[in-house]
Design a protein around this nucleic acid. Structure first.
Lengths: 336, 336
DNA sequence: TTGTACGCGTTATCAA
DNA sequence: TTGATAACGCGTACAA
């Protein structure tokens, strides 16, 4: 910028004024300056700018797993909206580990991101403290941590799972296995509550042996499903609380020499783009990824624009049960 | 840092010395300073540091599509290695669009990333110029742009596709449809070359009508496959040049009332984690995503460490044909 | 309308 | 071993 000022024969203040359009400059000088900028190939140094303004125009995005199609869909939307608004986004993955989560957030905070969008891993109080000390706008997505008063966009998990289980019950299933996510998360909890609620509504007694923890991961879900499948009286249907886990469930079913939906019905949370071309066509709960991403981005943008300390907003969206062909009617006579 | 120095009763230089361990400090002062740091809750400002040192400890990662499982797998590995080395990574998506690509790179450059890892979209000369002017370490992954002399890690695309087509030919297929990626990319080109080479080796005449451009996207591939399927003498097998496109191919097959592999065999580039649990079990070319990510991260780290202008290194890895059950033997008697 | 000069939080150089 | 001070590149009062 010094160079530009020198070659244009003006002061740096004037150059700054035209670069930022912050003050009126005579068209003659503006021309000289613009020429000089083009000639030198000058680009404003965002680091120095950030140091001065205290804003990096960067926001941190923390998710559990970049390999999970649900998260990537949401990330794509968020990035799109934020980029359009002039923000860069820094993406970090926690691998569902609270320790890594703290490291990643610390990394982001070090780099002075202006805001944070987080899908929390674990209901850790550490997160609460870190966020408090950070003192920057934060929006929680997918999962919320109780005790953290922040903007959030979540799903009505309970309602969604209840719909799915209602559907299975309507098909005649009474022994429905449930592969749960980690109960340290609001999603894990909410979805399980939906399962239990549906059972209660249908007058089906709860059987704890039918509920296994899969921690939202394929491998754990595989083991969990295995335990379900070797039961003397195995369930006639299995519901998986997310997309990664249903892969594990299907592998377990295959390895046990069973077939879906002939021998066992399967349904899961989260949709796949290929769900209606590959067999079995999975009956799933599709999340409104587009809306989730847009709302999350908009919430953080609002906070960034209005420093006002108005109360946190929580946006609750609905999932949509998408019925395909992985679930079969069942009657007791089918054995099992 | 001023505050720390004040409360510890020392100069900022001394504080800096203990924070960075850059100069020996008497244990007494060190103690005072560490206490002061703890008391104040001081955290070093990375922005100011970057302004001074000229390094942001951040590297930019540019891919086409965060929704593509191949890219996400690679990104996960790269992030892991780079984080471990103390670098943050800023992820951007180009959506296969050279214009967006230039914008995203510009965004990254503005923020003074120390290095760039790019999966180029289009063989654009613009990229060459941008990179040249950027003057920072760059490694290309997946695709290379001719004329850009940079470190790169790519696949032997030609060999891999040739293996797959050889396999189909061995099964008796002679009319093999090919859904190509954009021919502006080295991958699109290399893979098509593999297809043509395999045909030549087998003495099968080239039929341009069997080659359709799908631009690496599901929707375009759907249309391309449709054109193949309505041909009077439709192909007995289709090869798709990537993972997104094979979904489109399968949708086209379904919409035409055809079945795979009964009516038509299908194979594709890129593997899926669920490929052997959902039907048809796709025969694919699996890329060594772990190795790609590790090499890419290592190359950029090397460049960052040694400013030496040693010649660019190109690492070429091999794909692995993974045979499942989406391809059937074919004889002319089968009709078609 | 334009220019001067200071400060943002660090690090690096040099002198003490 | 420690401290004073000059950059790093930019924005912005304030003065002209």
């Amino acid at each position: 910028m010094l160079d530009v000022a020198a070659t244009a024969g003006v002061s740096v203040a004037t150059v700054s004024a035209v670069v930022n359009g912050t003050a009126p400059v005579s068209s003659e000088l503006r021309g000289r300056i613009e020429n000089a900028i083009a000639a030198i190939g000058y680009k404003r140094n965002a680091i120095a700018r950030s140091l001065k303004t205290g804003a990096t125009k960067t926001i941190g995005l923390v998710i559990a797993d970049i390999t999970n199609p649900f998260f990537t869909d949401v990330v794509a939307v968020i990035q799109d909206v934020l980029h359009r608004a002039g923000y860069a986004v820094m993406l970090c993955c926690t691998d569902e580990d609270p320790v890594q989560q703290e490291e990643q957030i610390s990394l982001l905070l070090d780099r002075m991101v202006d805001g944070l969008i987080i899908a929390p891993a674990g209901d850790d109080h550490a997160l609460e403290r870190v966020l408090q000390r950070a003192g920057i706008p934060t929006v929680l997505i997918d999962r919320i941590s109780h005790g953290i008063a922040a903007d959030a966009v979540v799903l009505d998990n309970q309602r969604a799972v209840q719909d799915a289980i209602d559907y299975l019950v309507g098909l005649g299933h009474r022994r429905i296995g449930y592969i749960s996510g980690s109960l340290d998360t609001s999603t894990g909890l909410g979805r399980l509550t939906g399962y239990r609620g549906a059972l209660d509504n249908a007058g089906i007694p709860q059987d704890d042996a039918l509920v296994r923890i899969g921690n939202f991961r394929e491998k754990d879900a595989y083991n969990a499903a295995m335990q379900l499948l070797v039961m003397p009286e195995r369930p006639s249907a299995i519901f998986s609380a997310n997309n990664l886990m249903v892969i594990g469930v299907m592998k377990a079913i295959r390895d046990m020499g069973l077939r879906c939906p002939d021998d066992i019905s399967v349904s899961s949370f989260d949709d796949f783009p290929w769900a209606d071309v590959f067999q079995p066509n999975l009956t799933t709960i599709a999340q409104p990824v587009q809306a989730i991403g847009e709302h999350a981005a908009q919430l953080i943008l609002d906070r960034l624009a209005n420093r006002s300390d108005r109360p946190p907003r929580q946006i609750v969206l609905s999932g949509r049960l998408t019925i395909r062909s992985s679930c079969r009617p069942f009657s007791a006579a089918d054995g099992g």
